[in-house]
Design a protein around this nucleic acid. Structure first.
Lengths: 101, 101, 101, 101
DNA sequence: GAACTTATGTCGGTGC
DNA sequence: GCACCGACATAAGTTC
């Protein structure tokens, strides 16, 4: 956790102004701004990775594989992985239901 | 293991695959596998970041902001940023047209 | 046939609306209304089936199965079915790539 | 008889499964299977109707209406219907409160 | 027009 | 016991 903020609910009057609500609003605005900027940074990172993925597909295409096939393979492998995870989850559910967890 | 089109030993080899082709296929398979694994790794990273984003939204929610509003703000800021980029692009175009680039 | 705005046959009556135009508009309105009512009927049917599904889950619950488990099982079976379909699709893709389709 | 988790009367045979329990399990498994198959059938029907809806939208599109508009109209009509129902509910409440139901 | 992302609605769980 | 909340499934929109 980042440790940013942690001031929700506190009535900190360090920067007290005549209008308490305005002060609170400023704190909130700052808090909100920080949250939003964090999200924006993360979105950028995500975009960057999405671009990298695109590049790898392009590379594959350049090497003669068609994108559709590559996507199919990846989807299939993902399905397998998901199914495995799902089976483990269901097993746990059963065990829990049987009081064996 | 039943590879697609693996057909060794047939005589009337309408669909025969030569050793050369098999060798090439193996190389290709390896090459393809590497591409796919790279993509899968990148997909995982992307997923991780998407989860981080979700966490930040949750954090915002916990601090009393509603998600919908946050999303709207981010969308707006993104539009602003896009508009700015667009304007810069236009400016560059003008400058280029004027031979001032 | 095109929808609203079909304008052939008017002579010089700049703002006049011919009977033909009214007729066309009416036809369009009617046509649109019918499409919309079909969708609404289908949405109702869909809702009805969704309710039926809910009932079956309730029935299962009443018989001592927990919903989560049931959902997990169904999801898993769906995954299997999807994976099978997907594998067939990929097989076709390969065969096509090999000119064997 | 209930399914998984029915555990009354066992003393220290923590993981023991009696013949009775196995028999019950078989019955349960069959029972569960039937429930699941019913749900799967219903899900398929639901999917079929969803596809039909898609088709009607496509048909509308082909006739020159845009999907977005159609969706808006349907949403509006749904709101109207919901509002009407709501008003009727309120009316009933009033009537009931007045002992006129 | 297909795939990916975003948004909305629904469902089950949980805390008061 | 009900209402809130988070999670999941579906639907809509957007982009390539």
């Amino acid at each position: 956790m980042s440790g940013i903020g942690h001031n929700s609910g506190s009535e900190d009057d360090t920067f007290a102004v005549s209008d308490e609500q305005l002060g609170a609003a400023n704190v909130s605005a700052e808090e909100l701004r920080l949250l939003i900027e964090r999200i924006e940074r993360l979105e950028e990172e995500k975009k960057g990775i999405a671009d990298d993925i695109k590049d790898v597909y392009s590379e594959g295409k350049a090497k003669g594989y068609d994108t559709k096939t590559m996507r199919k393979i990846i989807a299939l492998r993902k399905m397998d992985a998901d199914a495995r995870r799902e089976m483990e989850a269901i097993l746990e559910t059963y065990l829990a239901a049987l009081g064996m967890d």
